[in-house]
Write a protein that binds this DNA or RNA. Structure first.
Lengths: 211, 211
DNA sequence: TTGGTACCTACCCGTTTGGGTAGGTTATTG
DNA sequence: CAATAACCTACCCAAACGGGTAGGTACCAA
């Protein structure tokens, strides 16, 4: 009555990573990699074709990232079981993935194959899988209020080295209002000043280092 | 007279990455992976034992990072040919690796196997290998002056949300001096204010996001 | 010995920031 | 309909920051 094999779809743009994942999974007697996708479109096509039991999904990919692809897959196949794999594990990253509906989140840093296998089996059986460190970040994030759209704009402008007056001009609002948003955003992030605000925003994964 | 096979040592703490690398290299007729190491000690031991023609070295590892391990290997075997593989490719990261004496630097983001093979063969033949994006960052970094020890201390304290007065107290110097270092450091980083200074420090890889 | 670099201090002065307090409109949702 | 959240503006005031200028010491290398 139990299905003998767990069919896994590997989604990762990194060719070497795909090779490593396939090797680690295929060697297990109860697991079988039924396909590899390097991006969102390929992933969706293979999901439609093979209905995999579990999908391992990379976060960073050209085009749609793993969270967006997850949303698209779940929209069409609400029962799909997706485990997100990422080099990054900031509070915000984990939060976004969980909100999108993933069943597990693993960090690539460790590269721990045992952990991966546990996650795949647990999720295939209908459970979820979050290592302690990830679960902690999720809990931490849950306690924090979201930044509003305006606060995000201010935060971005702040990181670009704008003064309050400049931000006011850019957003076409009073610099009094900028001060207000800034105060709220410092409060939400737990920062003592504007400089620490951007630092904490980076650490929490709200802002990203892209040049 | 030419050596038929290029012996490669793979150094990476990530088990899946090692698997992917080995698979990608071993499949080539002219390449042979003669060992895998998960950290600096293992790497050094295998280098002594096998004298590999080329070493692919991960940046992020528990214990000594890839640059430190590179230095240790080159101290003992100055002719060793090392290619650094990293997820990160900030100006500072590339700069540190090149200063340590690597012959090539590849980013793991692409996971481009062709590029890896080209790099290994080029380096084995006595050449170097830097993709255009990496070479550009190296050139960029070369033009910039180093931060002094004091400036680094100020930068770190700055990112922690300290005011000038607090930094002065912590470093036991005048807040006038803090202002001076801060001005120099803004100048070197090309930042308009203290907030942008830490942002640029992150982007350049001088500061790191660790919680 | 001279030059360069890192490091330190001080003054003046205008601008920017942050804290507090007190109001308002609009849109959404129970 | 009332409550809530997001958004906006204004005032006062003290503290912090940034720009300019003008010095000093210590050390290392040419």
């Amino acid at each position: 009555m139990m299905k003998m094999e767990i069919g896994v779809l590997v989604v990762d743009d990194n060719q070497m990573m795909r090779r490593g994942l396939r090797g680690s999974l295929d060697i297990e007697p109860d697991l079988r990699v039924i396909g590899e996708a390097a991006n969102g479109e390929e992933a969706l096509a293979l999901v439609r074709q093979h209905k995999p039991d579990v999908i391992t999904m990379d976060y960073q990919m050209p085009g749609d990232n793993g969270v967006v692809v997850t949303e698209k897959i779940l929209e069409e196949f609400p029962a799909a079981k997706i485990i997100l794999l990422s080099i990054f594990d900031s509070e915000e990253d984990v939060w976004n993935a969980v909100r999108a509906g993933v069943r597990g989140y693993l960090t690539k840093k460790s590269g721990d194959v045992k952990e991966l296998l546990e996650a795949v089996r647990s999720v295939a059986a209908g459970g979820t899988y979050y290592p302690a460190s990830i679960a902690g970040k999720l809990e931490e994030r849950r306690k924090q209020p979201d930044l509003t759209k305006r606060e995000m704009e201010i935060l971005t402008l702040l990181a670009d080295g704008n003064t309050n007056k400049e931000m006011a001009r850019i957003l076409d609002i009073s610099d009094m209002t900028v001060k207000l948003h800034l105060a709220n955003l410092r409060e939400k992030l737990g920062a003592v000043d504007r400089t620490q605000a951007v630092v904490l925003a980076y650490k929490k994964g709200i802002l990203h280092i892209e040049e």
